[in-house]
Structures are given as structure tokens and as C-alpha cells.
Amino acid sequence: MGVQRVVADGERTWTVVGEDHLPAGPAEEYLEFLRVAQRASPNTVRSYAASLSRWWDYLTAAGLSWDEVTLPSFTPFLTVLRTGDPPGVSRLPAGAGGQMAAESTVAARVTAVLSFYRYHADVHQVPVAGRLYRVSTRGGSYVPGLAHLQRGRDQLRPAVRLRRHACRPVPLLTPLQVEAILDGCARWDAACGEWTGSVRDRLMFATLAETGMRLGECLSTRHCDWHAGRGGTPFIEVVPRQDHPAGARVKNSRYRRIHISDELERLHSEYLWQLCDAGAHQALDLENHFVFVNLCRGRWLAPLRPETVYDLVATLKRRLGSAVPDGWTPHWFRHTHASALLLSGAREHVVMRRLGHADIQTTLSLYGWVSEDAELAALAGWRRFCAGWDGRQGSSGE
């Protein structure tokens, strides 16, 4: 089994194919449900297709039929995901030091497979889901405030529970590293009175650093989405669209407005003038075209692809050397932006809306450690804080 990229009607997607190079029927039906009914992003479909491909490989190796799986036959799949070993193979203690898959990766694979069976249970009454789920019973004395709304409703939970490790601090870029990346793209030459380098590249990374947008959201913006201040604060509209040739899109399909600095707005204006000087406004409707386009490589003015951005990142890593971390990616700008906002005292729900998270718990899970760590660091001076307590004992009773 394998994951195959498919281009249909100009849109890119993925499916699961067998040794005969034909789509696996049950898997493709579920993936089509994700595409059409759930409006899942291409990246989500790709992730689910990869998980189902691993599941089909396991079924083939174990000699199981996809619609006759039981809980005992499902459990070894977790070991296969963690170790990468074929079913029935056990590692000796001396060889147990190999690379193991992260528990978050295992959880994502299992979630995809369980969702696949939930779909086929609802649509085709395939009984496997009934064996892999169980009715939850809440123990202990704690009762949620809205528990009365769930009376009479059975809550199904996976019979296989995976322990998720606490989220590690996300990788960040320091202000000097961000500036090094921006200067590595383009610099303002005061002697010549003009920019040297690629203003497009500087604008792209500056936008990621200042707005916290995802790379797909940044690449899908158009010039009409950028609004000059005109006496107010300039802003960028993040508009959900599905027409980027490379599949770049706004996650969760949520519209939002991100206010930006005058400096970033001026940089966009400079880039726009450079495009006009090159004749871009005569070749197409520049106002309604994508902001970030090909200028040298590929078809001129074609929308920039994420792969091109990652090639640029690799070039900057070689050029800047030890001035930047070896593993930095465009998504590090998003982590850095969110962490800086929280350290500056911005409220969590404000950061959530600026980043476009669907739930505040996502913001807290990823970046809550930032403000928590700052508060804990403030307790380092607890001796000085408590020193003022000396001599006050009994003063209120005298």
C-alpha cells in the first residue's frame, strides 16, 4: 500500500493505493467524505491517507480483513507504529535502543484509523467500531457543571488510550536571529537610497514574524487583502480561499483581520512598486493577484509554492551559518510571535484570535508555558519578598 498524490480539476489531493495501483475502496470513500463533507484541507487528507496506508500495510502483514478487526488484533498495531517492526516481531533488550516514533505521532495515526471505522459504522454498519470503542463511565466525585445536559446519552470513548506527553516548549527565534534572516533577504542601502536583495523575500518573512500567520495563509493573501492605514492602523485580511494552485489555504476556513505596523505596510508598498516597475500590472490584475509570486524561477508571476519557500530557507541557512538555528522553519516565526505577545502581557483570548486558533485550549497548550514560566521565574526572588514579613507577627493582635 502507498499514498498517491492525485490532481483532479486543478486541485491536489491524496489517496491510498494498493499493489495494483488502484485506490483502496473503503479508504478512498472515507477520504472523499473528508474532502467533500468535512472540507478538510489537503494536508489533513494527506495525513489521514498516510495513517490508513500504514493500517492497510498492517492488515496485509497480519492476514486480517479490514472489516473483521477485533480489539486484540488491533492492539499490536500500536507496537508496529511505535517501533516500525513488522507484526509479530519482538525486539531483544540489546536492540531496544532504536529510534521510536513519538507518542503524538502514534496518537494521530490511531485517531485516523478510529475515525475511519466510526464513519463506516455510521454509513455501512461495519461492526468494527463497536469493538474498538466502549461506553465511558465517569468515576470519582467530580461532576462537571454541564453534566446534566449529558444525561441519557452514551459517551463513546476509544478502548485504546494513549498517554500524551506534556507539550515541550515550542522552538523560538531571538530578535537578533529574526533580524539576521530579514537582512539576509534584503537590506536598505542608505548610500544608494534603495533596497539591495529580494524585497519579496524580506516582506514574506517579515509578515510571518509580525502577524504570526501560517505559511499557507501568508502565501494565499492577495494585494487587495492589504489595507493601508490612511490615518489609522494598517491591517491584513485573512480570507478563506480554495484557489491557490499549490493548495495553500487558510486553516479552519476562518476569516480574521490582523493589524500590522506602518513599517510592514511600507515594505509591502515598496514591493508593489517594484512589481509595477517590472510591468506586472500590465500582465495581470495585480490588485486581485497573489502577493507572493515567482520573480526569477519558474513561470513569471505564478503564485509562490511552499516548496519554493523551503528552498529559500535552506539557502538562508547556508548563507547565515551559525547566526540562525540549524532546524528553523517558517513556522518558527509563528511560535516566536505568539510567545512575544504573551510575554508582553497580551491576554490569551486576544492571542487566540490573532493566531486564528479555533479554541483557546490550543493556545494554552502550545504557549501557556511562556507566561507560566515568566511567573515562576519571578518567584526566584521569594526570599526578598518574604523578608518584609519579619517583625510583623502578632502586630495585628497588639
Rank of each mutant, 00 (worst) to 15 (best):
R134Q: 14
L219V: 06
R157L: 13
W226S: 04
L156W: 13
D243R: 00
L172A: 09
C218A: 15
A206E: 13
G193K: 06
T137M: 04
A228I: 09
G247V: 02
L149W: 11
D154C: 10
Y133D: 04
R241L: 08
G216L: 04
E194A: 14
L215T: 05
P175S: 02
L203G: 11
T221G: 10
T137G: 07
L156D: 11
V160L: 09
R256W: 00
V250I: 05
F235W: 14
H223Y: 05
V178L: 04
S253R: 13
A209K: 05
A191W: 08
A206G: 07
P169L: 07
A147D: 13
V143A: 03
R202C: 12
E210P: 06
A206S: 14
P240N: 10
G140L: 07
R153K: 12
V238W: 01
R168T: 14
G212A: 06
G229Y: 01
R134M: 13
E194H: 11
S136W: 08
P144T: 12
R164M: 14
A159C: 13
H244Y: 05
G197H: 06
L203P: 02
L215Q: 07
P245E: 09
V238K: 02
P158E: 07
P158A: 13
T137F: 01
C192K: 15
H148S: 14
R241D: 02
R131G: 15
L156P: 08
R202I: 08
F205V: 10
T233Y: 03
A228D: 12
A129Y: 04
L203F: 06
G212F: 01
L176H: 11
